[in-house]
Write a protein that binds this DNA or RNA. Structure first.
Length: 899
RNA sequence: GCCCGGGUGGCGUAACUGGUAGACGCUGGGGACUUAAAAUCCCCUGGCCGCAAGGCCGUGCCGGUUCGAAUCCGGCCCCGGGCACCA
């Protein structure tokens, strides 16, 4: 064993050992409990970033922990390989997305290998491989057959200069990112998946997911947005015909307060009204400019214009003016709303702006409405100014009004979801081709199963002016499968969320060339622990749940929920440094180029290393290219090694919280592992003779078996050697807490626990007094148990640390002959006998303020404790003769004297 | 704008179902070792008052419940994530 800790050497050795023994290969074995631990697969952007390192380190800790607990663990890895960045790179460098992607995968795989993750690489997959995406196509066709996939028009961002569809990300302040041209909305035909058919189940089954964070479930529930309301119609007459304008409301109780109605700019009625109204036409056109993003729509100034048309109030029969409003969403409900300014804040603001009347119809249950209204009164109350409905509460009014509307054939109660069907068509090259053929005679025809996969040509280079597949004759031209006549292939590809909606299922059977799934899926699925960024809380996780349910209903899966437990990790942040130039231009400097000094009072100053002049701090933010505050994990690994990087990641922050980068923190991690190494270096000299000791000491210790890691201490040990017994108690208490923290995945305190154990056994023990016992005397027994205690504590320390820093613990475990591999060592359990204490310490409070502590016998009852506490001089000083009202005793913790 | 989180020393954080606020680590200061430096080891490190013993204040802000609140409730401020074509 080397005296100096050299991470690079021991990490290479450990990784070689694992690789040669095929240690991470997961094989189905029905007799063993399985554990499927999955981290979200990366997009192959080029290099690993810190978020990946954090994600996969967390996954690896879970994986290795469950292995030591005796589970058959699967931890696979793959690549979310289709997507926009590959096309952007192609435009910048002229390299086809396929080549760029494959090169990136090779680089990142290398990087992952250097971190020593317990990954079964035999199951690796990439979503851009035809073997994978053919099943996207196959399942899409099954959904089409069932009506779960269908075609309709949808709205997209359109760049009028490049004549191309833009992703939301490519729209900056309402303009195209490359051309700077104002973006327009455009309607195009697209394929949809009917996720709304599963809305109720997706909502209801959130309750069956106790292993998911509450906040994720709340976000999903709000996203699905089930609301109970009333769908009703305003009758109107147009072009000599009687028509109906349908709207939806959750506040039917306010229906008597309607002073106007409004439709979205995309509503057919808006188009009809604009036909002979030039001003309105211009307004509708104006509304069509700008992006389709909801955040943009919601923050827009509320604008509107009267159509000149009137509709009839369904209950009063009065005429109500019809407006076009840019805040009415075509995608939600009917694309039209009733306007009740008295009780809806958006309507209120709209009305104030356009001088429409306000009619309050709801008042607080007890009390009156303050008039005139300064804002909409949106609380539930009772009806007023509402004729026959006056005095009714919310539910009573809704019931009565819905019944009256129904009697007139003008409406009824309806359940509405905010959730919209999933548009999967993308007018992009680098994705799964949608397996449809367009025939002039037969229409849209599915590609027959036998001709799947529709393979994407891999040598196209996009240029920013639309999908290059449209110029690829070889791909475009085909025969209609129905009539055999020349036809044209669909060039739209699928949303990459389709790829990521089921990859975790395919890991069970990546090599099956003839079926999407097989019996191995039954063994491994569902995923026991899924780990990934909180930014995926809604879309990816909701689509995956939907996809799983579709596969279940098609008889392809036996489970309805894909992820039993979910851990959403926080983002990785770093400081931002910049200078403002004379022209106001901001230049960002990477924190690695900046030196920060802190004085005693906590005042910080930062200078650029290269010129020694100050830079400004821009606070802390997510690592990003634009702020130039990223840290390259590769540099970290090259400099410190994998274990230090991993330990830092785990120790710095709890998994769910954001993690702030800190060079000093990395140094701290390095210091700890060096200290661990030097402890075991010294300890090795002692342990070499240890197995022989048991023989020398005879029958008194024959039951001890250090190599099987079962330790026995006689009852009188606590009196023979109270000092070490107390330390052993500490170690086992720390272990007990570490197990609790491991279970709740608060790994930062598990790392702390390892530090505490090392602190507990390091200094007080020193090795020089561990003389070799020669005979069966009391002193020899004492020395023996001290050695056994040290052996036990050391083995606990290495095992607690093994999931976090696998390389150094692998090396030390073998070096000290604890066993063949710590990877398969049993996870340690605290010894109940070690935790026993004869006296316990209680905190004493007077009126809730800490005033000292007392030691009482372990089995003292509350009355005895009360007497001891009241007799305490400090307590008497603070009680100061006042009558004692009450004494609260919290067993094992504290006593509060109330005066 | 809407939905969801978070806010504790100079810093990262800890405090299990309400029960000793600041474990563990970093930074800073002091000391030991060294010819010297690095490394390592030891001590101190929330604020205020005090020679000390000790006392008072303190978990974003305001208020409430409780013997007792970082933790529960109501209101506010600030920061972060998501908003359906970034992944």
């Amino acid at each position: 064993m080397q005296q100096k800790y050299n991470p690079h050497v021991i990490e290479r050795e450990a990784q070689k050992h694992w690789e040669q023994s095929g240690a991470f290969r997961a094989v189905e074995s029905p007799d063993q409990p399985k554990y499927y631990c999955l981290s979200m697969f990366p997009y192959p952007s080029g290099k690993l970033h810190m978020g990946h390192v954090r994600n996969y380190t967390l996954g690896d800790v879970v994986t290795r922990y469950y292995r030591m607990k005796g589970y058959n663990v699967l931890q696979p890895m793959g690549w979310d390989a289709f997507g926009l960045p590959a096309e952007n790179a192609a435009m910048a460098n002229g390299v086809p997305p396929a080549k760029w992607t494959h090169d990136n995968i090779a680089t990142m795989k290398q990087q992952l290998a250097s971190l020593g993750f317990a990954i079964d690489w035999s199951r690796e997959l990439a979503t851009c491989e035809p073997d994978y995406y053919r099943w996207n196509q196959w399942l899409f066709l099954r959904m089409l057959e069932k009506g779960l996939a269908y075609k309709k028009t949808g709205v997209v961002n359109w760049d009028p200069v490049d004549q191309t569809v833009l992703a939301n990300e490519q729209v900056i302040d309402g303009r195209g990112w490359r051309t700077g041209a104002p973006v327009e909305k455009r309607e195009i035909p697209m394929y949809y998946m009917a996720i709304t058919r599963y809305a109720d189940e997706l909502l209801a089954e959130l309750e069956k997911l106790p292993g998911w964070p509450e906040r994720v479930k709340t976000m999903q529930a709000n996203w699905i947005g089930k609301s109970f309301g009333v769908r009703f119609a305003f009758p109107y007459e147009l072009d000599g015909k009687n028509k109906k304008l349908w709207v939806f409301t959750t506040r039917a109780d306010t229906i008597m307060g309607i002073t106007f109605a409004a439709v979205a700019a995309e509503h057919p009625l808006a188009a009809r009204a604009a036909r002979d109204n030039r001003e309105l036409h211009a307004f509708v056109e104006e509304c069509k400019r700008g992006s389709v993003m909801e955040a943009d729509l919601a923050t827009m100034e509320k604008k509107g214009m009267p159509t000149g048309l009137h509709v009839t109030h369904p209950l009063t029969g009065k005429k109500v003016p019809l407006w076009v409003g840019n805040y009415v969403l075509m995608a939600y409900g009917e694309g039209a709303v009733m306007g009740v300014p008295g009780h809806d804040q958006r309507d209120f603001e709209f009305t104030t702006q356009h001088g429409l009347p306000i009619k309050p119809v709801i008042k607080p249950k007890d009390g009156a409405l303050e008039l005139p209204l300064k804002a909409a009164y949106v609380e539930y109350g009772v009806c007023m100014n509402s004729g026959k409905y006056d005095g009714l509460d919310y539910q009573g009014a809704v019931d009565a009004i819905a019944a009256d509307l129904k009697a007139k054939g003008l409406g009824e109660k309806q359940v509405l979801y905010r959730l919209r069907d999933w548009g999967i068509s993308r007018q992009r090259y680098w994705g799964t081709p949608i397996p449809i053929i367009h025939c002039e005679r037969c229409g849209d025809v599915s590609v027959p199963d036998g001709e799947l996969p529709v393979v994407l040509p891999e040598d196209c280079v996009p240029d920013g002016t639309g999908n290059p597949l449209n110029k690829r004759e070889g791909f475009l031209k085909c025969q209609c499968p129905k009539c055999g006549k020349p036809a044209r292939r669909e060039t739209d590809t699928m949303d990459t969320f389709v790829d990521s909606s089921w990859y975790y299922i395919r890991y069970a059977c990546p090599d099956n060339g003839s079926a999407m799934v097989d019996e191995r899926v039954r063994y491994w699925l569902p995923v026991d622990q899924y780990i990934g960024g909180i930014e995926h809380a809604i879309l990816h996780l909701l689509y995956s749940r939907f996809w799983t349910k579709v596969m279940r209903d098609l008889g392809l899966a036996k489970f309805g929920e894909p992820f039993v437990n979910l851990l959403t990790q926080g983002m990785v942040l770093n400081e931002i440094f910049f200078r403002k130039g004379d022209t106001g231009r901001i230049t960002y400097y990477n924190p690695a180029e900046v030196e920060v000094r802190t004085d005693n009072g906590g005042n910080r100053s930062a200078v650029l290393k290269s010129d020694g002049k100050p830079v400004e701090s821009g606070g802390i933010g997510t690592m990003s290219k634009s702020k130039n505050n990223g840290v390259d994990p590769q540099e970290l690994i090259d400099h410190y090694g994998a274990d230090i990087a991993r330990f830092f990641m785990i120790f710095q922050s709890p998994p769910e919280m954001t993690l702030a980068w800190s060079n000093a923190g990395v140094e701290g991690a390095a210091r700890f592992l060096k200290r661990l190494w030097s402890f075991f270096y010294d300890y090795r000299a002692v342990i070499e003779d240890f197995p022989g000791l048991a023989k020398k000491l005879g029958p008194a210790v024959a039951q001890s078996n250090p190599l099987k890691l079962i330790y026995h201490f006689p009852d009188d040990w606590r009196t023979i050697d109270p000092g070490h017994a107390a330390i052993r108690r500490d170690v086992h208490l720390i272990l007990k807490q570490a197990i609790f923290d491991m279970q709740r995945m608060q790994f930062n305190t598990v790392a702390s626990a390892a530090m505490k154990i090392l602190n507990a056994i390091y200094s007080p023990l020193g090795f020089q007094d561990l003389a070799q016992p020669q005979e069966q005397s009391q002193a020899s027994r004492q020395a023996f148990y001290r050695q056994q205690f040290l052996h036990e504590s050391s083995s606990i320390l290495l095992r607690v640390l093994a999931p976090i820093t696998p390389h150094i613990t692998h090396h030390l475990w073998r070096e000290l002959k604890f066993g063949e591999s710590v990877l398969t060592a049993p996870w340690p359990e605290p010894d109940p006998a070690a935790l026993i204490e004869d006296e316990i310490e209680l905190v004493v409070q007077v009126n809730g303020k800490k005033r000292g502590d007392v030691r009482v016998p372990r089995d003292a009852d509350n009355k005895a404790i009360e007497q001891i506490v009241l007799a305490n001089p400090t307590v008497q000083k603070f009680v100061n003769g006042q009558p004692v009202k009450k004494v609260v005793v919290v067993p094992g913790r504290l006593v509060n004297v109330v005066v």
